[in-house]
Nucleic acid binder design. Structure first.
Lengths: 228, 228, 228, 228
DNA sequence: CATGAATGAGAGTTCATTCAT
DNA sequence: GATGAATGAACTCTCATTCAT
C-alpha cells in the first residue's frame, strides 16, 4: 500500500549526511524525525528501518564525523617532521574538513550536549539502554583522544624547544574552540576558501607558539631538528 | 485555586540567571519552562508574569549577557594605551566575565541558533510577533558591534605597526571562538582561576599578533615573576 | 510507546459527525479535542492525523453541514413550479435536514462566531495561516450564497405577484433565524417529527407571504396542488 | 501600591454592559476576565470585588437582559386591546430592545448554553454551588415564562378567532428564533432603524396568523398591488 | 522496505482565581 | 477597592515510536 517512487534506494550514509545538514540548521532537539526523513524522501517511520532511534541516529552522525577527523590526524602524526610542521598539517587538515562539511563540524560542537543528556528510550528492551551507553562512551573516549593528539604534539614541541612554554591544556582548547567555531561562521563561496582559512588558522596558532622564541628565523616554518 | 507560600518575591534578574544556568546544561530546546521555574521556586505558569514567552525569556538572557560584555569593553576601549595593552585588557575582561558566569557565556554560543529559528508564538496578539523580531534584530546588531570592537582594535594595531599583518576578520573569529569555548569547558574551582585562564588566553593571541615582530619583550607566559 | 488496539479504522466523516455532536452540547470553545476523540474511541493526538488543527476540524464540520443544505436546495430550485411551491419545498428540505441532524444545524448557528475569531495556530508552517483563511472565506461566501437562494425566490415570488411585497432581506433572515433555532429546541422523539415541524414552519412563512393576497383558497395547510 | 486613576468609580452595571459587549464578540468561553476588566479599566482581580465568579457575572448579564424584556412585556400584556394589537406591541417592543442593545440580545441566544453547562467553582465554599444553581434555575424559569407570554397570547388569539389555528408552541419558537437572530445580524446605522425592523417583523408574523382569515383588513405591509 | 494510523508523554501557554499589600 | 504575583488545572498541539498492512 506504499511505495517509494524515489529514484534510488536510500542508504545509511545518505541519511547521515541529510541528518547532519538538518541538525546544523535546527539542532538536535528542534529537529524531528520527519524533518530528516523528508530530506531523503522517506517517512519518519521508515527511518526506523535504518536506525534504532533518534539517539542512535545522532550518535552515528557524530561518530562518522569524528572518524573522518581522526583518520586525517593519524596519517599526519606518524610522519617524522618537526612538531611545528606536523601541527600545521593537523590544523590545516582539521579546518579543511570542517569547511568541506560544516554541517558535520557544527554537529561536533553543538550536538555533543544533546548526546550527553540523551537518555536512551527505556521503551523496548533493557539493553537498548546498555548498547547505547556503551557506544556513546566509546565515542567520548575517541573524542578525548582526538583532543589529546593536539595536546600531545604541543607538549612535544615545548619539550623539544620548538614552542615556548604554554599551558598545553588551555592552549589546545583555545585552538579547538577556534576550529569548532569555523563550522559556525564559515560559508562556502565566501571571501575565502577552506584552504585559505586553514592556512590563516594554522599561522595564527603556530606563530603564537613560536613567536616569543624568534631569534633570527622569524617563526621558522620548517626548522632544523636542532642538535639532535 | 492559587496560593503563594513564597518566602520572597522573585525578580526578573533572578530568573534570568537561573535560566542561563539551566540553558547551559540542557540547551534551549531541551529546557522546559518548568525546569527554569523550579530553579527559582516557581511554577511554570508564574514565569509568564515576567516573560511573555519562552522565546522572550531566551532573548532576555542573551541581551543581558551581551550587555555586560559590551559595558566592559567600552570602558577599556577609550583609554590611551597601546593597542596591545588595550586588547589584552579586552580579552582579559571578556574571559573573566565568561568564567565568572559560564552559563551566560555558553548561552551566547549555543543558543543563538535557537534565537534565530524562533518563531514567536502568535499567541496573544499579532504584534507579539513584530515586537519580538525587532528586539531580536537589535540584539544581533549589538552582537555584531561587539565583534567589531575586537576587529577594529586589531586593525588599529596593524596600522600602528604594533601587530603583524593578519587577516583581521578571521583572527577575530578565531579569538572569539576560543573565548566562547571557555564557557563550555571552564569549571569554577578547577585547576585555574578565571583570571589565570584570562591571562593565558590574552597571552596566546597577543603573542600571535606580535610574535613575528622584533620587540624587546617576548611576551612570555610564565614570565619571570620579576622581584621574586 | 504506541499501540493500536483499535477495532476498526475511523474515517474523517465519522469524526466530523462526532464532532458536530459534541459541539452542539458544549460549543466550540468548551469542547476539547479529547472530548471529540473520545466519541470515536481515539486519543486527542490521533485526531491530528485527520485534521491539522481544531480550527480546521471546526471548519470541516461547518463546510460539510452547509454542503448538504446547498445540495438539497439546488435540486429544488430548478424545478418549474410556482414560487410558493418551491419555497415550501426549500423550507421543508432545510428543516428536515436540521431535525435529522440537529447537531450540524446548531453548529451552523452557534459556531460561526468561533470560526470568525479563529486565528489559525501558526504552529507548523506559515501558510497554514493562508490556507485556513482562504478556505474559511470560501465557506462564508457559500453561506451567503445559501441565504441568497431564499432571498431570490422571495423576490421572484413578489415579482410574479404570488407573494405580497415584503422586505426580502429581513424576511429571509426572519425565516432563517426561525430555522436555525429549530436546531436548538428540537429533540428527536418529541411530540412532532421533523416532517411535521417542517410542514408547520413552511406554512407559517408561506401564509405570511400569501396571506394578504388570499382570494378563494385560505392558505390551506395541505393544499391541493390545484389545477395548476 | 495600586490605584485607579480612572475618571469615575465603576459600578456593577458598567461592568455588565461592558461584559455583554465583549461576550457578543467572543462568546463566553473565549472571553477572559481580563478582557472584560480591560473594558472598564480594571484588572481581572478587581472584578472579583463585584462578582463572585465568571459564572455569576454571566448570569448577571443574562438576568439583566431578560428583566428588561420582561418588564417591557408586562406593561403591554395588561392592556385591553385585541390580541393582534397586543402581539404587535410585544414583538415591536422586543425587537426594539434587541436592536437597541444587540449585545445583550445576542447573549440571550448564544450564552445560554454556557450558563447551562456552567459548573460553579467547587473551589471556595460549598454553597457558592447552591447559590449559583438556585439563581440559575430561577433565570431559566423566568425565561420560560417569557416564552409563555407569547405562547399564551397566540392561544388567546386563536380562541378568540382572531388568529387561524396554528401550532402555538412551534409558532412561538419560530417567532423567537427570528427575534433572537436579529441580535446577530442587526447593525446600528444600517439600512433600517430598530423601529423599522420591528415593524417588519411584527407584520411578518401577524400576517401569518391572520392571513388565511377573511377579515376586512388583510394587514399588508406595502400592500396595494390591487389591480392584480 | 515503506507507510499510514495510532498513541503516551509531555511542552508551552492560558486562565480563573486567590491573597498579601 | 484595587492590584501584582502566584498557581493548579486544563488545553492544544508535537513528537518519537510502534505495528499491521
Amino acid at each position: 500500500m506504499a511505495r517509494k517512487p524515489a529514484d534510488q534506494s536510500v542508504n545509511k550514509m545518505d541519511i547521515l549526511l541529510a541528518a547532519a545538514d538538518v541538525l546544523r540548521r535546527n539542532g538536535y532537539e528542534a529537529t524531528t524525525m520527519k524533518d530528516i526523513a523528508a530530506q531523503v524522501n522517506l517517512t519518519a517511520a521508515s527511518l526506523y528501518h535504518h536506525f534504532k532511534s533518534k539517539d542512535f541516529l545522532l550518535l552515528s552522525v557524530l561518530e562518522t564525523g569524528l572518524q573522518v577527523a581522526i583518520d586525517q590526524m593519524e596519517r599526519i602524526l606518524h610522519t617524522p617532521q618537526p612538531c611545528a610542521d606536523r601541527l600545521r598539517a593537523m590544523i590545516t587538515g582539521h579546518i579543511v574538513d570542517v569547511t568541506a562539511n560544516p554541517a558535520v563540524g557544527a554537529a561536533m560542537v553543538f550536538e555533543i550536549r544533546s548526546l550527553m543528556n540523551a537518555r536512551p528510550g527505556i521503551a523496548g528492551s533493557i539493553h537498548s539502554d546498555a548498547a547505547f551507553i556503551e557506544r556513546r562512551d566509546a565515542f567520548f573516549r575517541q573524542r578525548d583522544a582526538f583532543e589529546n593528539l593536539f595536546r600531545r604534539i604541543i607538549k612535544e614541541g615545548i619539550a623539544a624547544g620548538e614552542f615556548r612554554e604554554v599551558d598545553a591544556a588551555v592552549f589546545t582548547r583555545a585552538m579547538l574552540g577556534a576550529h569548532n567555531w569555523v563550522g559556525v561562521w564559515y560559508r562556502p563561496g565566501g571571501r575565502l576558501t577552506g584552504q585559505e582559512v586553514a592556512a590563516i588558522m594554522a599561522d595564527t596558532f603556530i606563530t603564537s607558539l613560536t613567536g616569543g622564541l624568534a631569534e633570527g628565523q622569524p617563526a621558522p616554518l620548517h626548522r632544523a631538528q636542532p642538535g639532535r
